[in-house]
Design a protein around this nucleic acid. Structure first.
Lengths: 193, 193
DNA sequence: TGTGTGCATTGAACTAGGACAAGAAATGGG
DNA sequence: CCCATTTCTTGTCCTAGTTCAATGCACACA
């Protein structure tokens, strides 16, 4: 009985109780402690996880060794290398790490395939999920080139009001693509408005 | 008999000839001349188009009225507001315009739904398509924050070697998120290597 | 055949943000 | 409860990229 998950997947496709039971049988609860690397670059991502509780970050490491955060995953988000394609066997380019003790509901690739085979409607729900993910990535790309640091930070606050209380400032800087020092200056300027 | 389209969709899911016939019956060929706006911000996107021949650009307009190119669509690409979700009725935020006389194969939302209803495997092919689109958008986001203008331009040349011969320089600058003047200077520097 | 309009180039002056360094504050683990 | 480590702040100097303006270029079109 994973009510939050059921609501999450039922937003655009409706499922019967029996169909949701198939889902519950195939997705596995898992607890992962703070500061655990769940996926590292070069590995194959073998999970897709719904965040029940906690907070993770997904990031690239660039050529100069700087980390760039692609996504924060908090309650009711999905994490995994969702852009990863089970059909071409490429390793992931990203890292995923827990930033708090976290509870997930997890698929491995086989059980996700089995879910799609047993209830094809889930294929549609996941397609829509990926579309929404794409829409938000496009918006972020747009913001990242068209807005200055201050506006990006304000937009971030609007979109993720809870994150600043939960993670260190420099992770937010990394997400915004600015230096931690400059974020500090932006905040100082905003404070004395 | 749209061989290129068949190959495009068969890359990760295989279809029978009968299934491909269903596809051919539902997707409509269409010619659209140069400099036609196919979609404007605020409208609902009512197509998803496979580019047989030609070149389009998809772009946002930012708060200062500057255009930012999200995507060039050339032969064998898909264009449309793919991140758009048929279930929530939101209007698109993007513009799509042809830059050359172009030939498409187009779905309207109804025929796409009918295709999924008649051959559910297409739902999977389109999910994978969206995943690949997401992967490339993430890579671009990564490049846009972690690389300088010169490296972004070189990466662009690697990824889209044919575009520079086809479109005006300032569109490439817009895609890269730099000013046209600065792109010109970058190119000048690269030329005398 | 000229001419206008949009495009590319170049240069000069300016600015947002980065890199570095040093100190202050917070956090956490024994 | 204390020490070590991480995080945050602030200042100074520096650079990549912008903005503005002038000039040259090319091709569409009358």
């Amino acid at each position: 009985m994973n009510t939050a998950l059921h609501n999450n997947l039922s937003r655009y496709v409706s499922f019967t109780d029996d169909e949701l039971k198939v889902l519950d049988a195939l997705i596995k609860p898992q607890f992962i402690p703070k500061r655990t690397t769940m996926l590292r670059s070069g590995e194959k991502c073998n999970f897709e996880a719904y965040v029940v509780k906690g907070c993770v970050r997904k990031y690239y490491i660039d050529a100069d060794g700087n980390e760039l955060i692609l996504q924060f995953g908090v309650e009711d988000h999905w994490v995994g290398d969702i852009s990863f394609n089970a059909y071409d066997d490429q390793p992931s380019r990203v890292f995923i790490e827990t930033m708090e003790d976290s509870e997930f509901l997890m698929f491995d690739p086989e059980s996700k395939e089995e879910l799609f085979a047993r209830v094809p409607k889930f294929e549609r729900a996941f397609r829509i999920l990926v579309q929404r993910h794409l829409a938000s990535t496009q918006n972020r790309l747009f913001d990242s080139v068209s807005k200055n640091a201050t506006d990006k930070y304000l937009e971030f606050l609007r979109l993720y009001p809870t994150i600043p209380q939960r993670v260190a400032q420099h992770y937010i800087a990394s997400y915004l693509g600015i230096s931690p020092e400059f974020l500090s200056k932006v905040r100082a300027r905003l404070a004395k408005h």
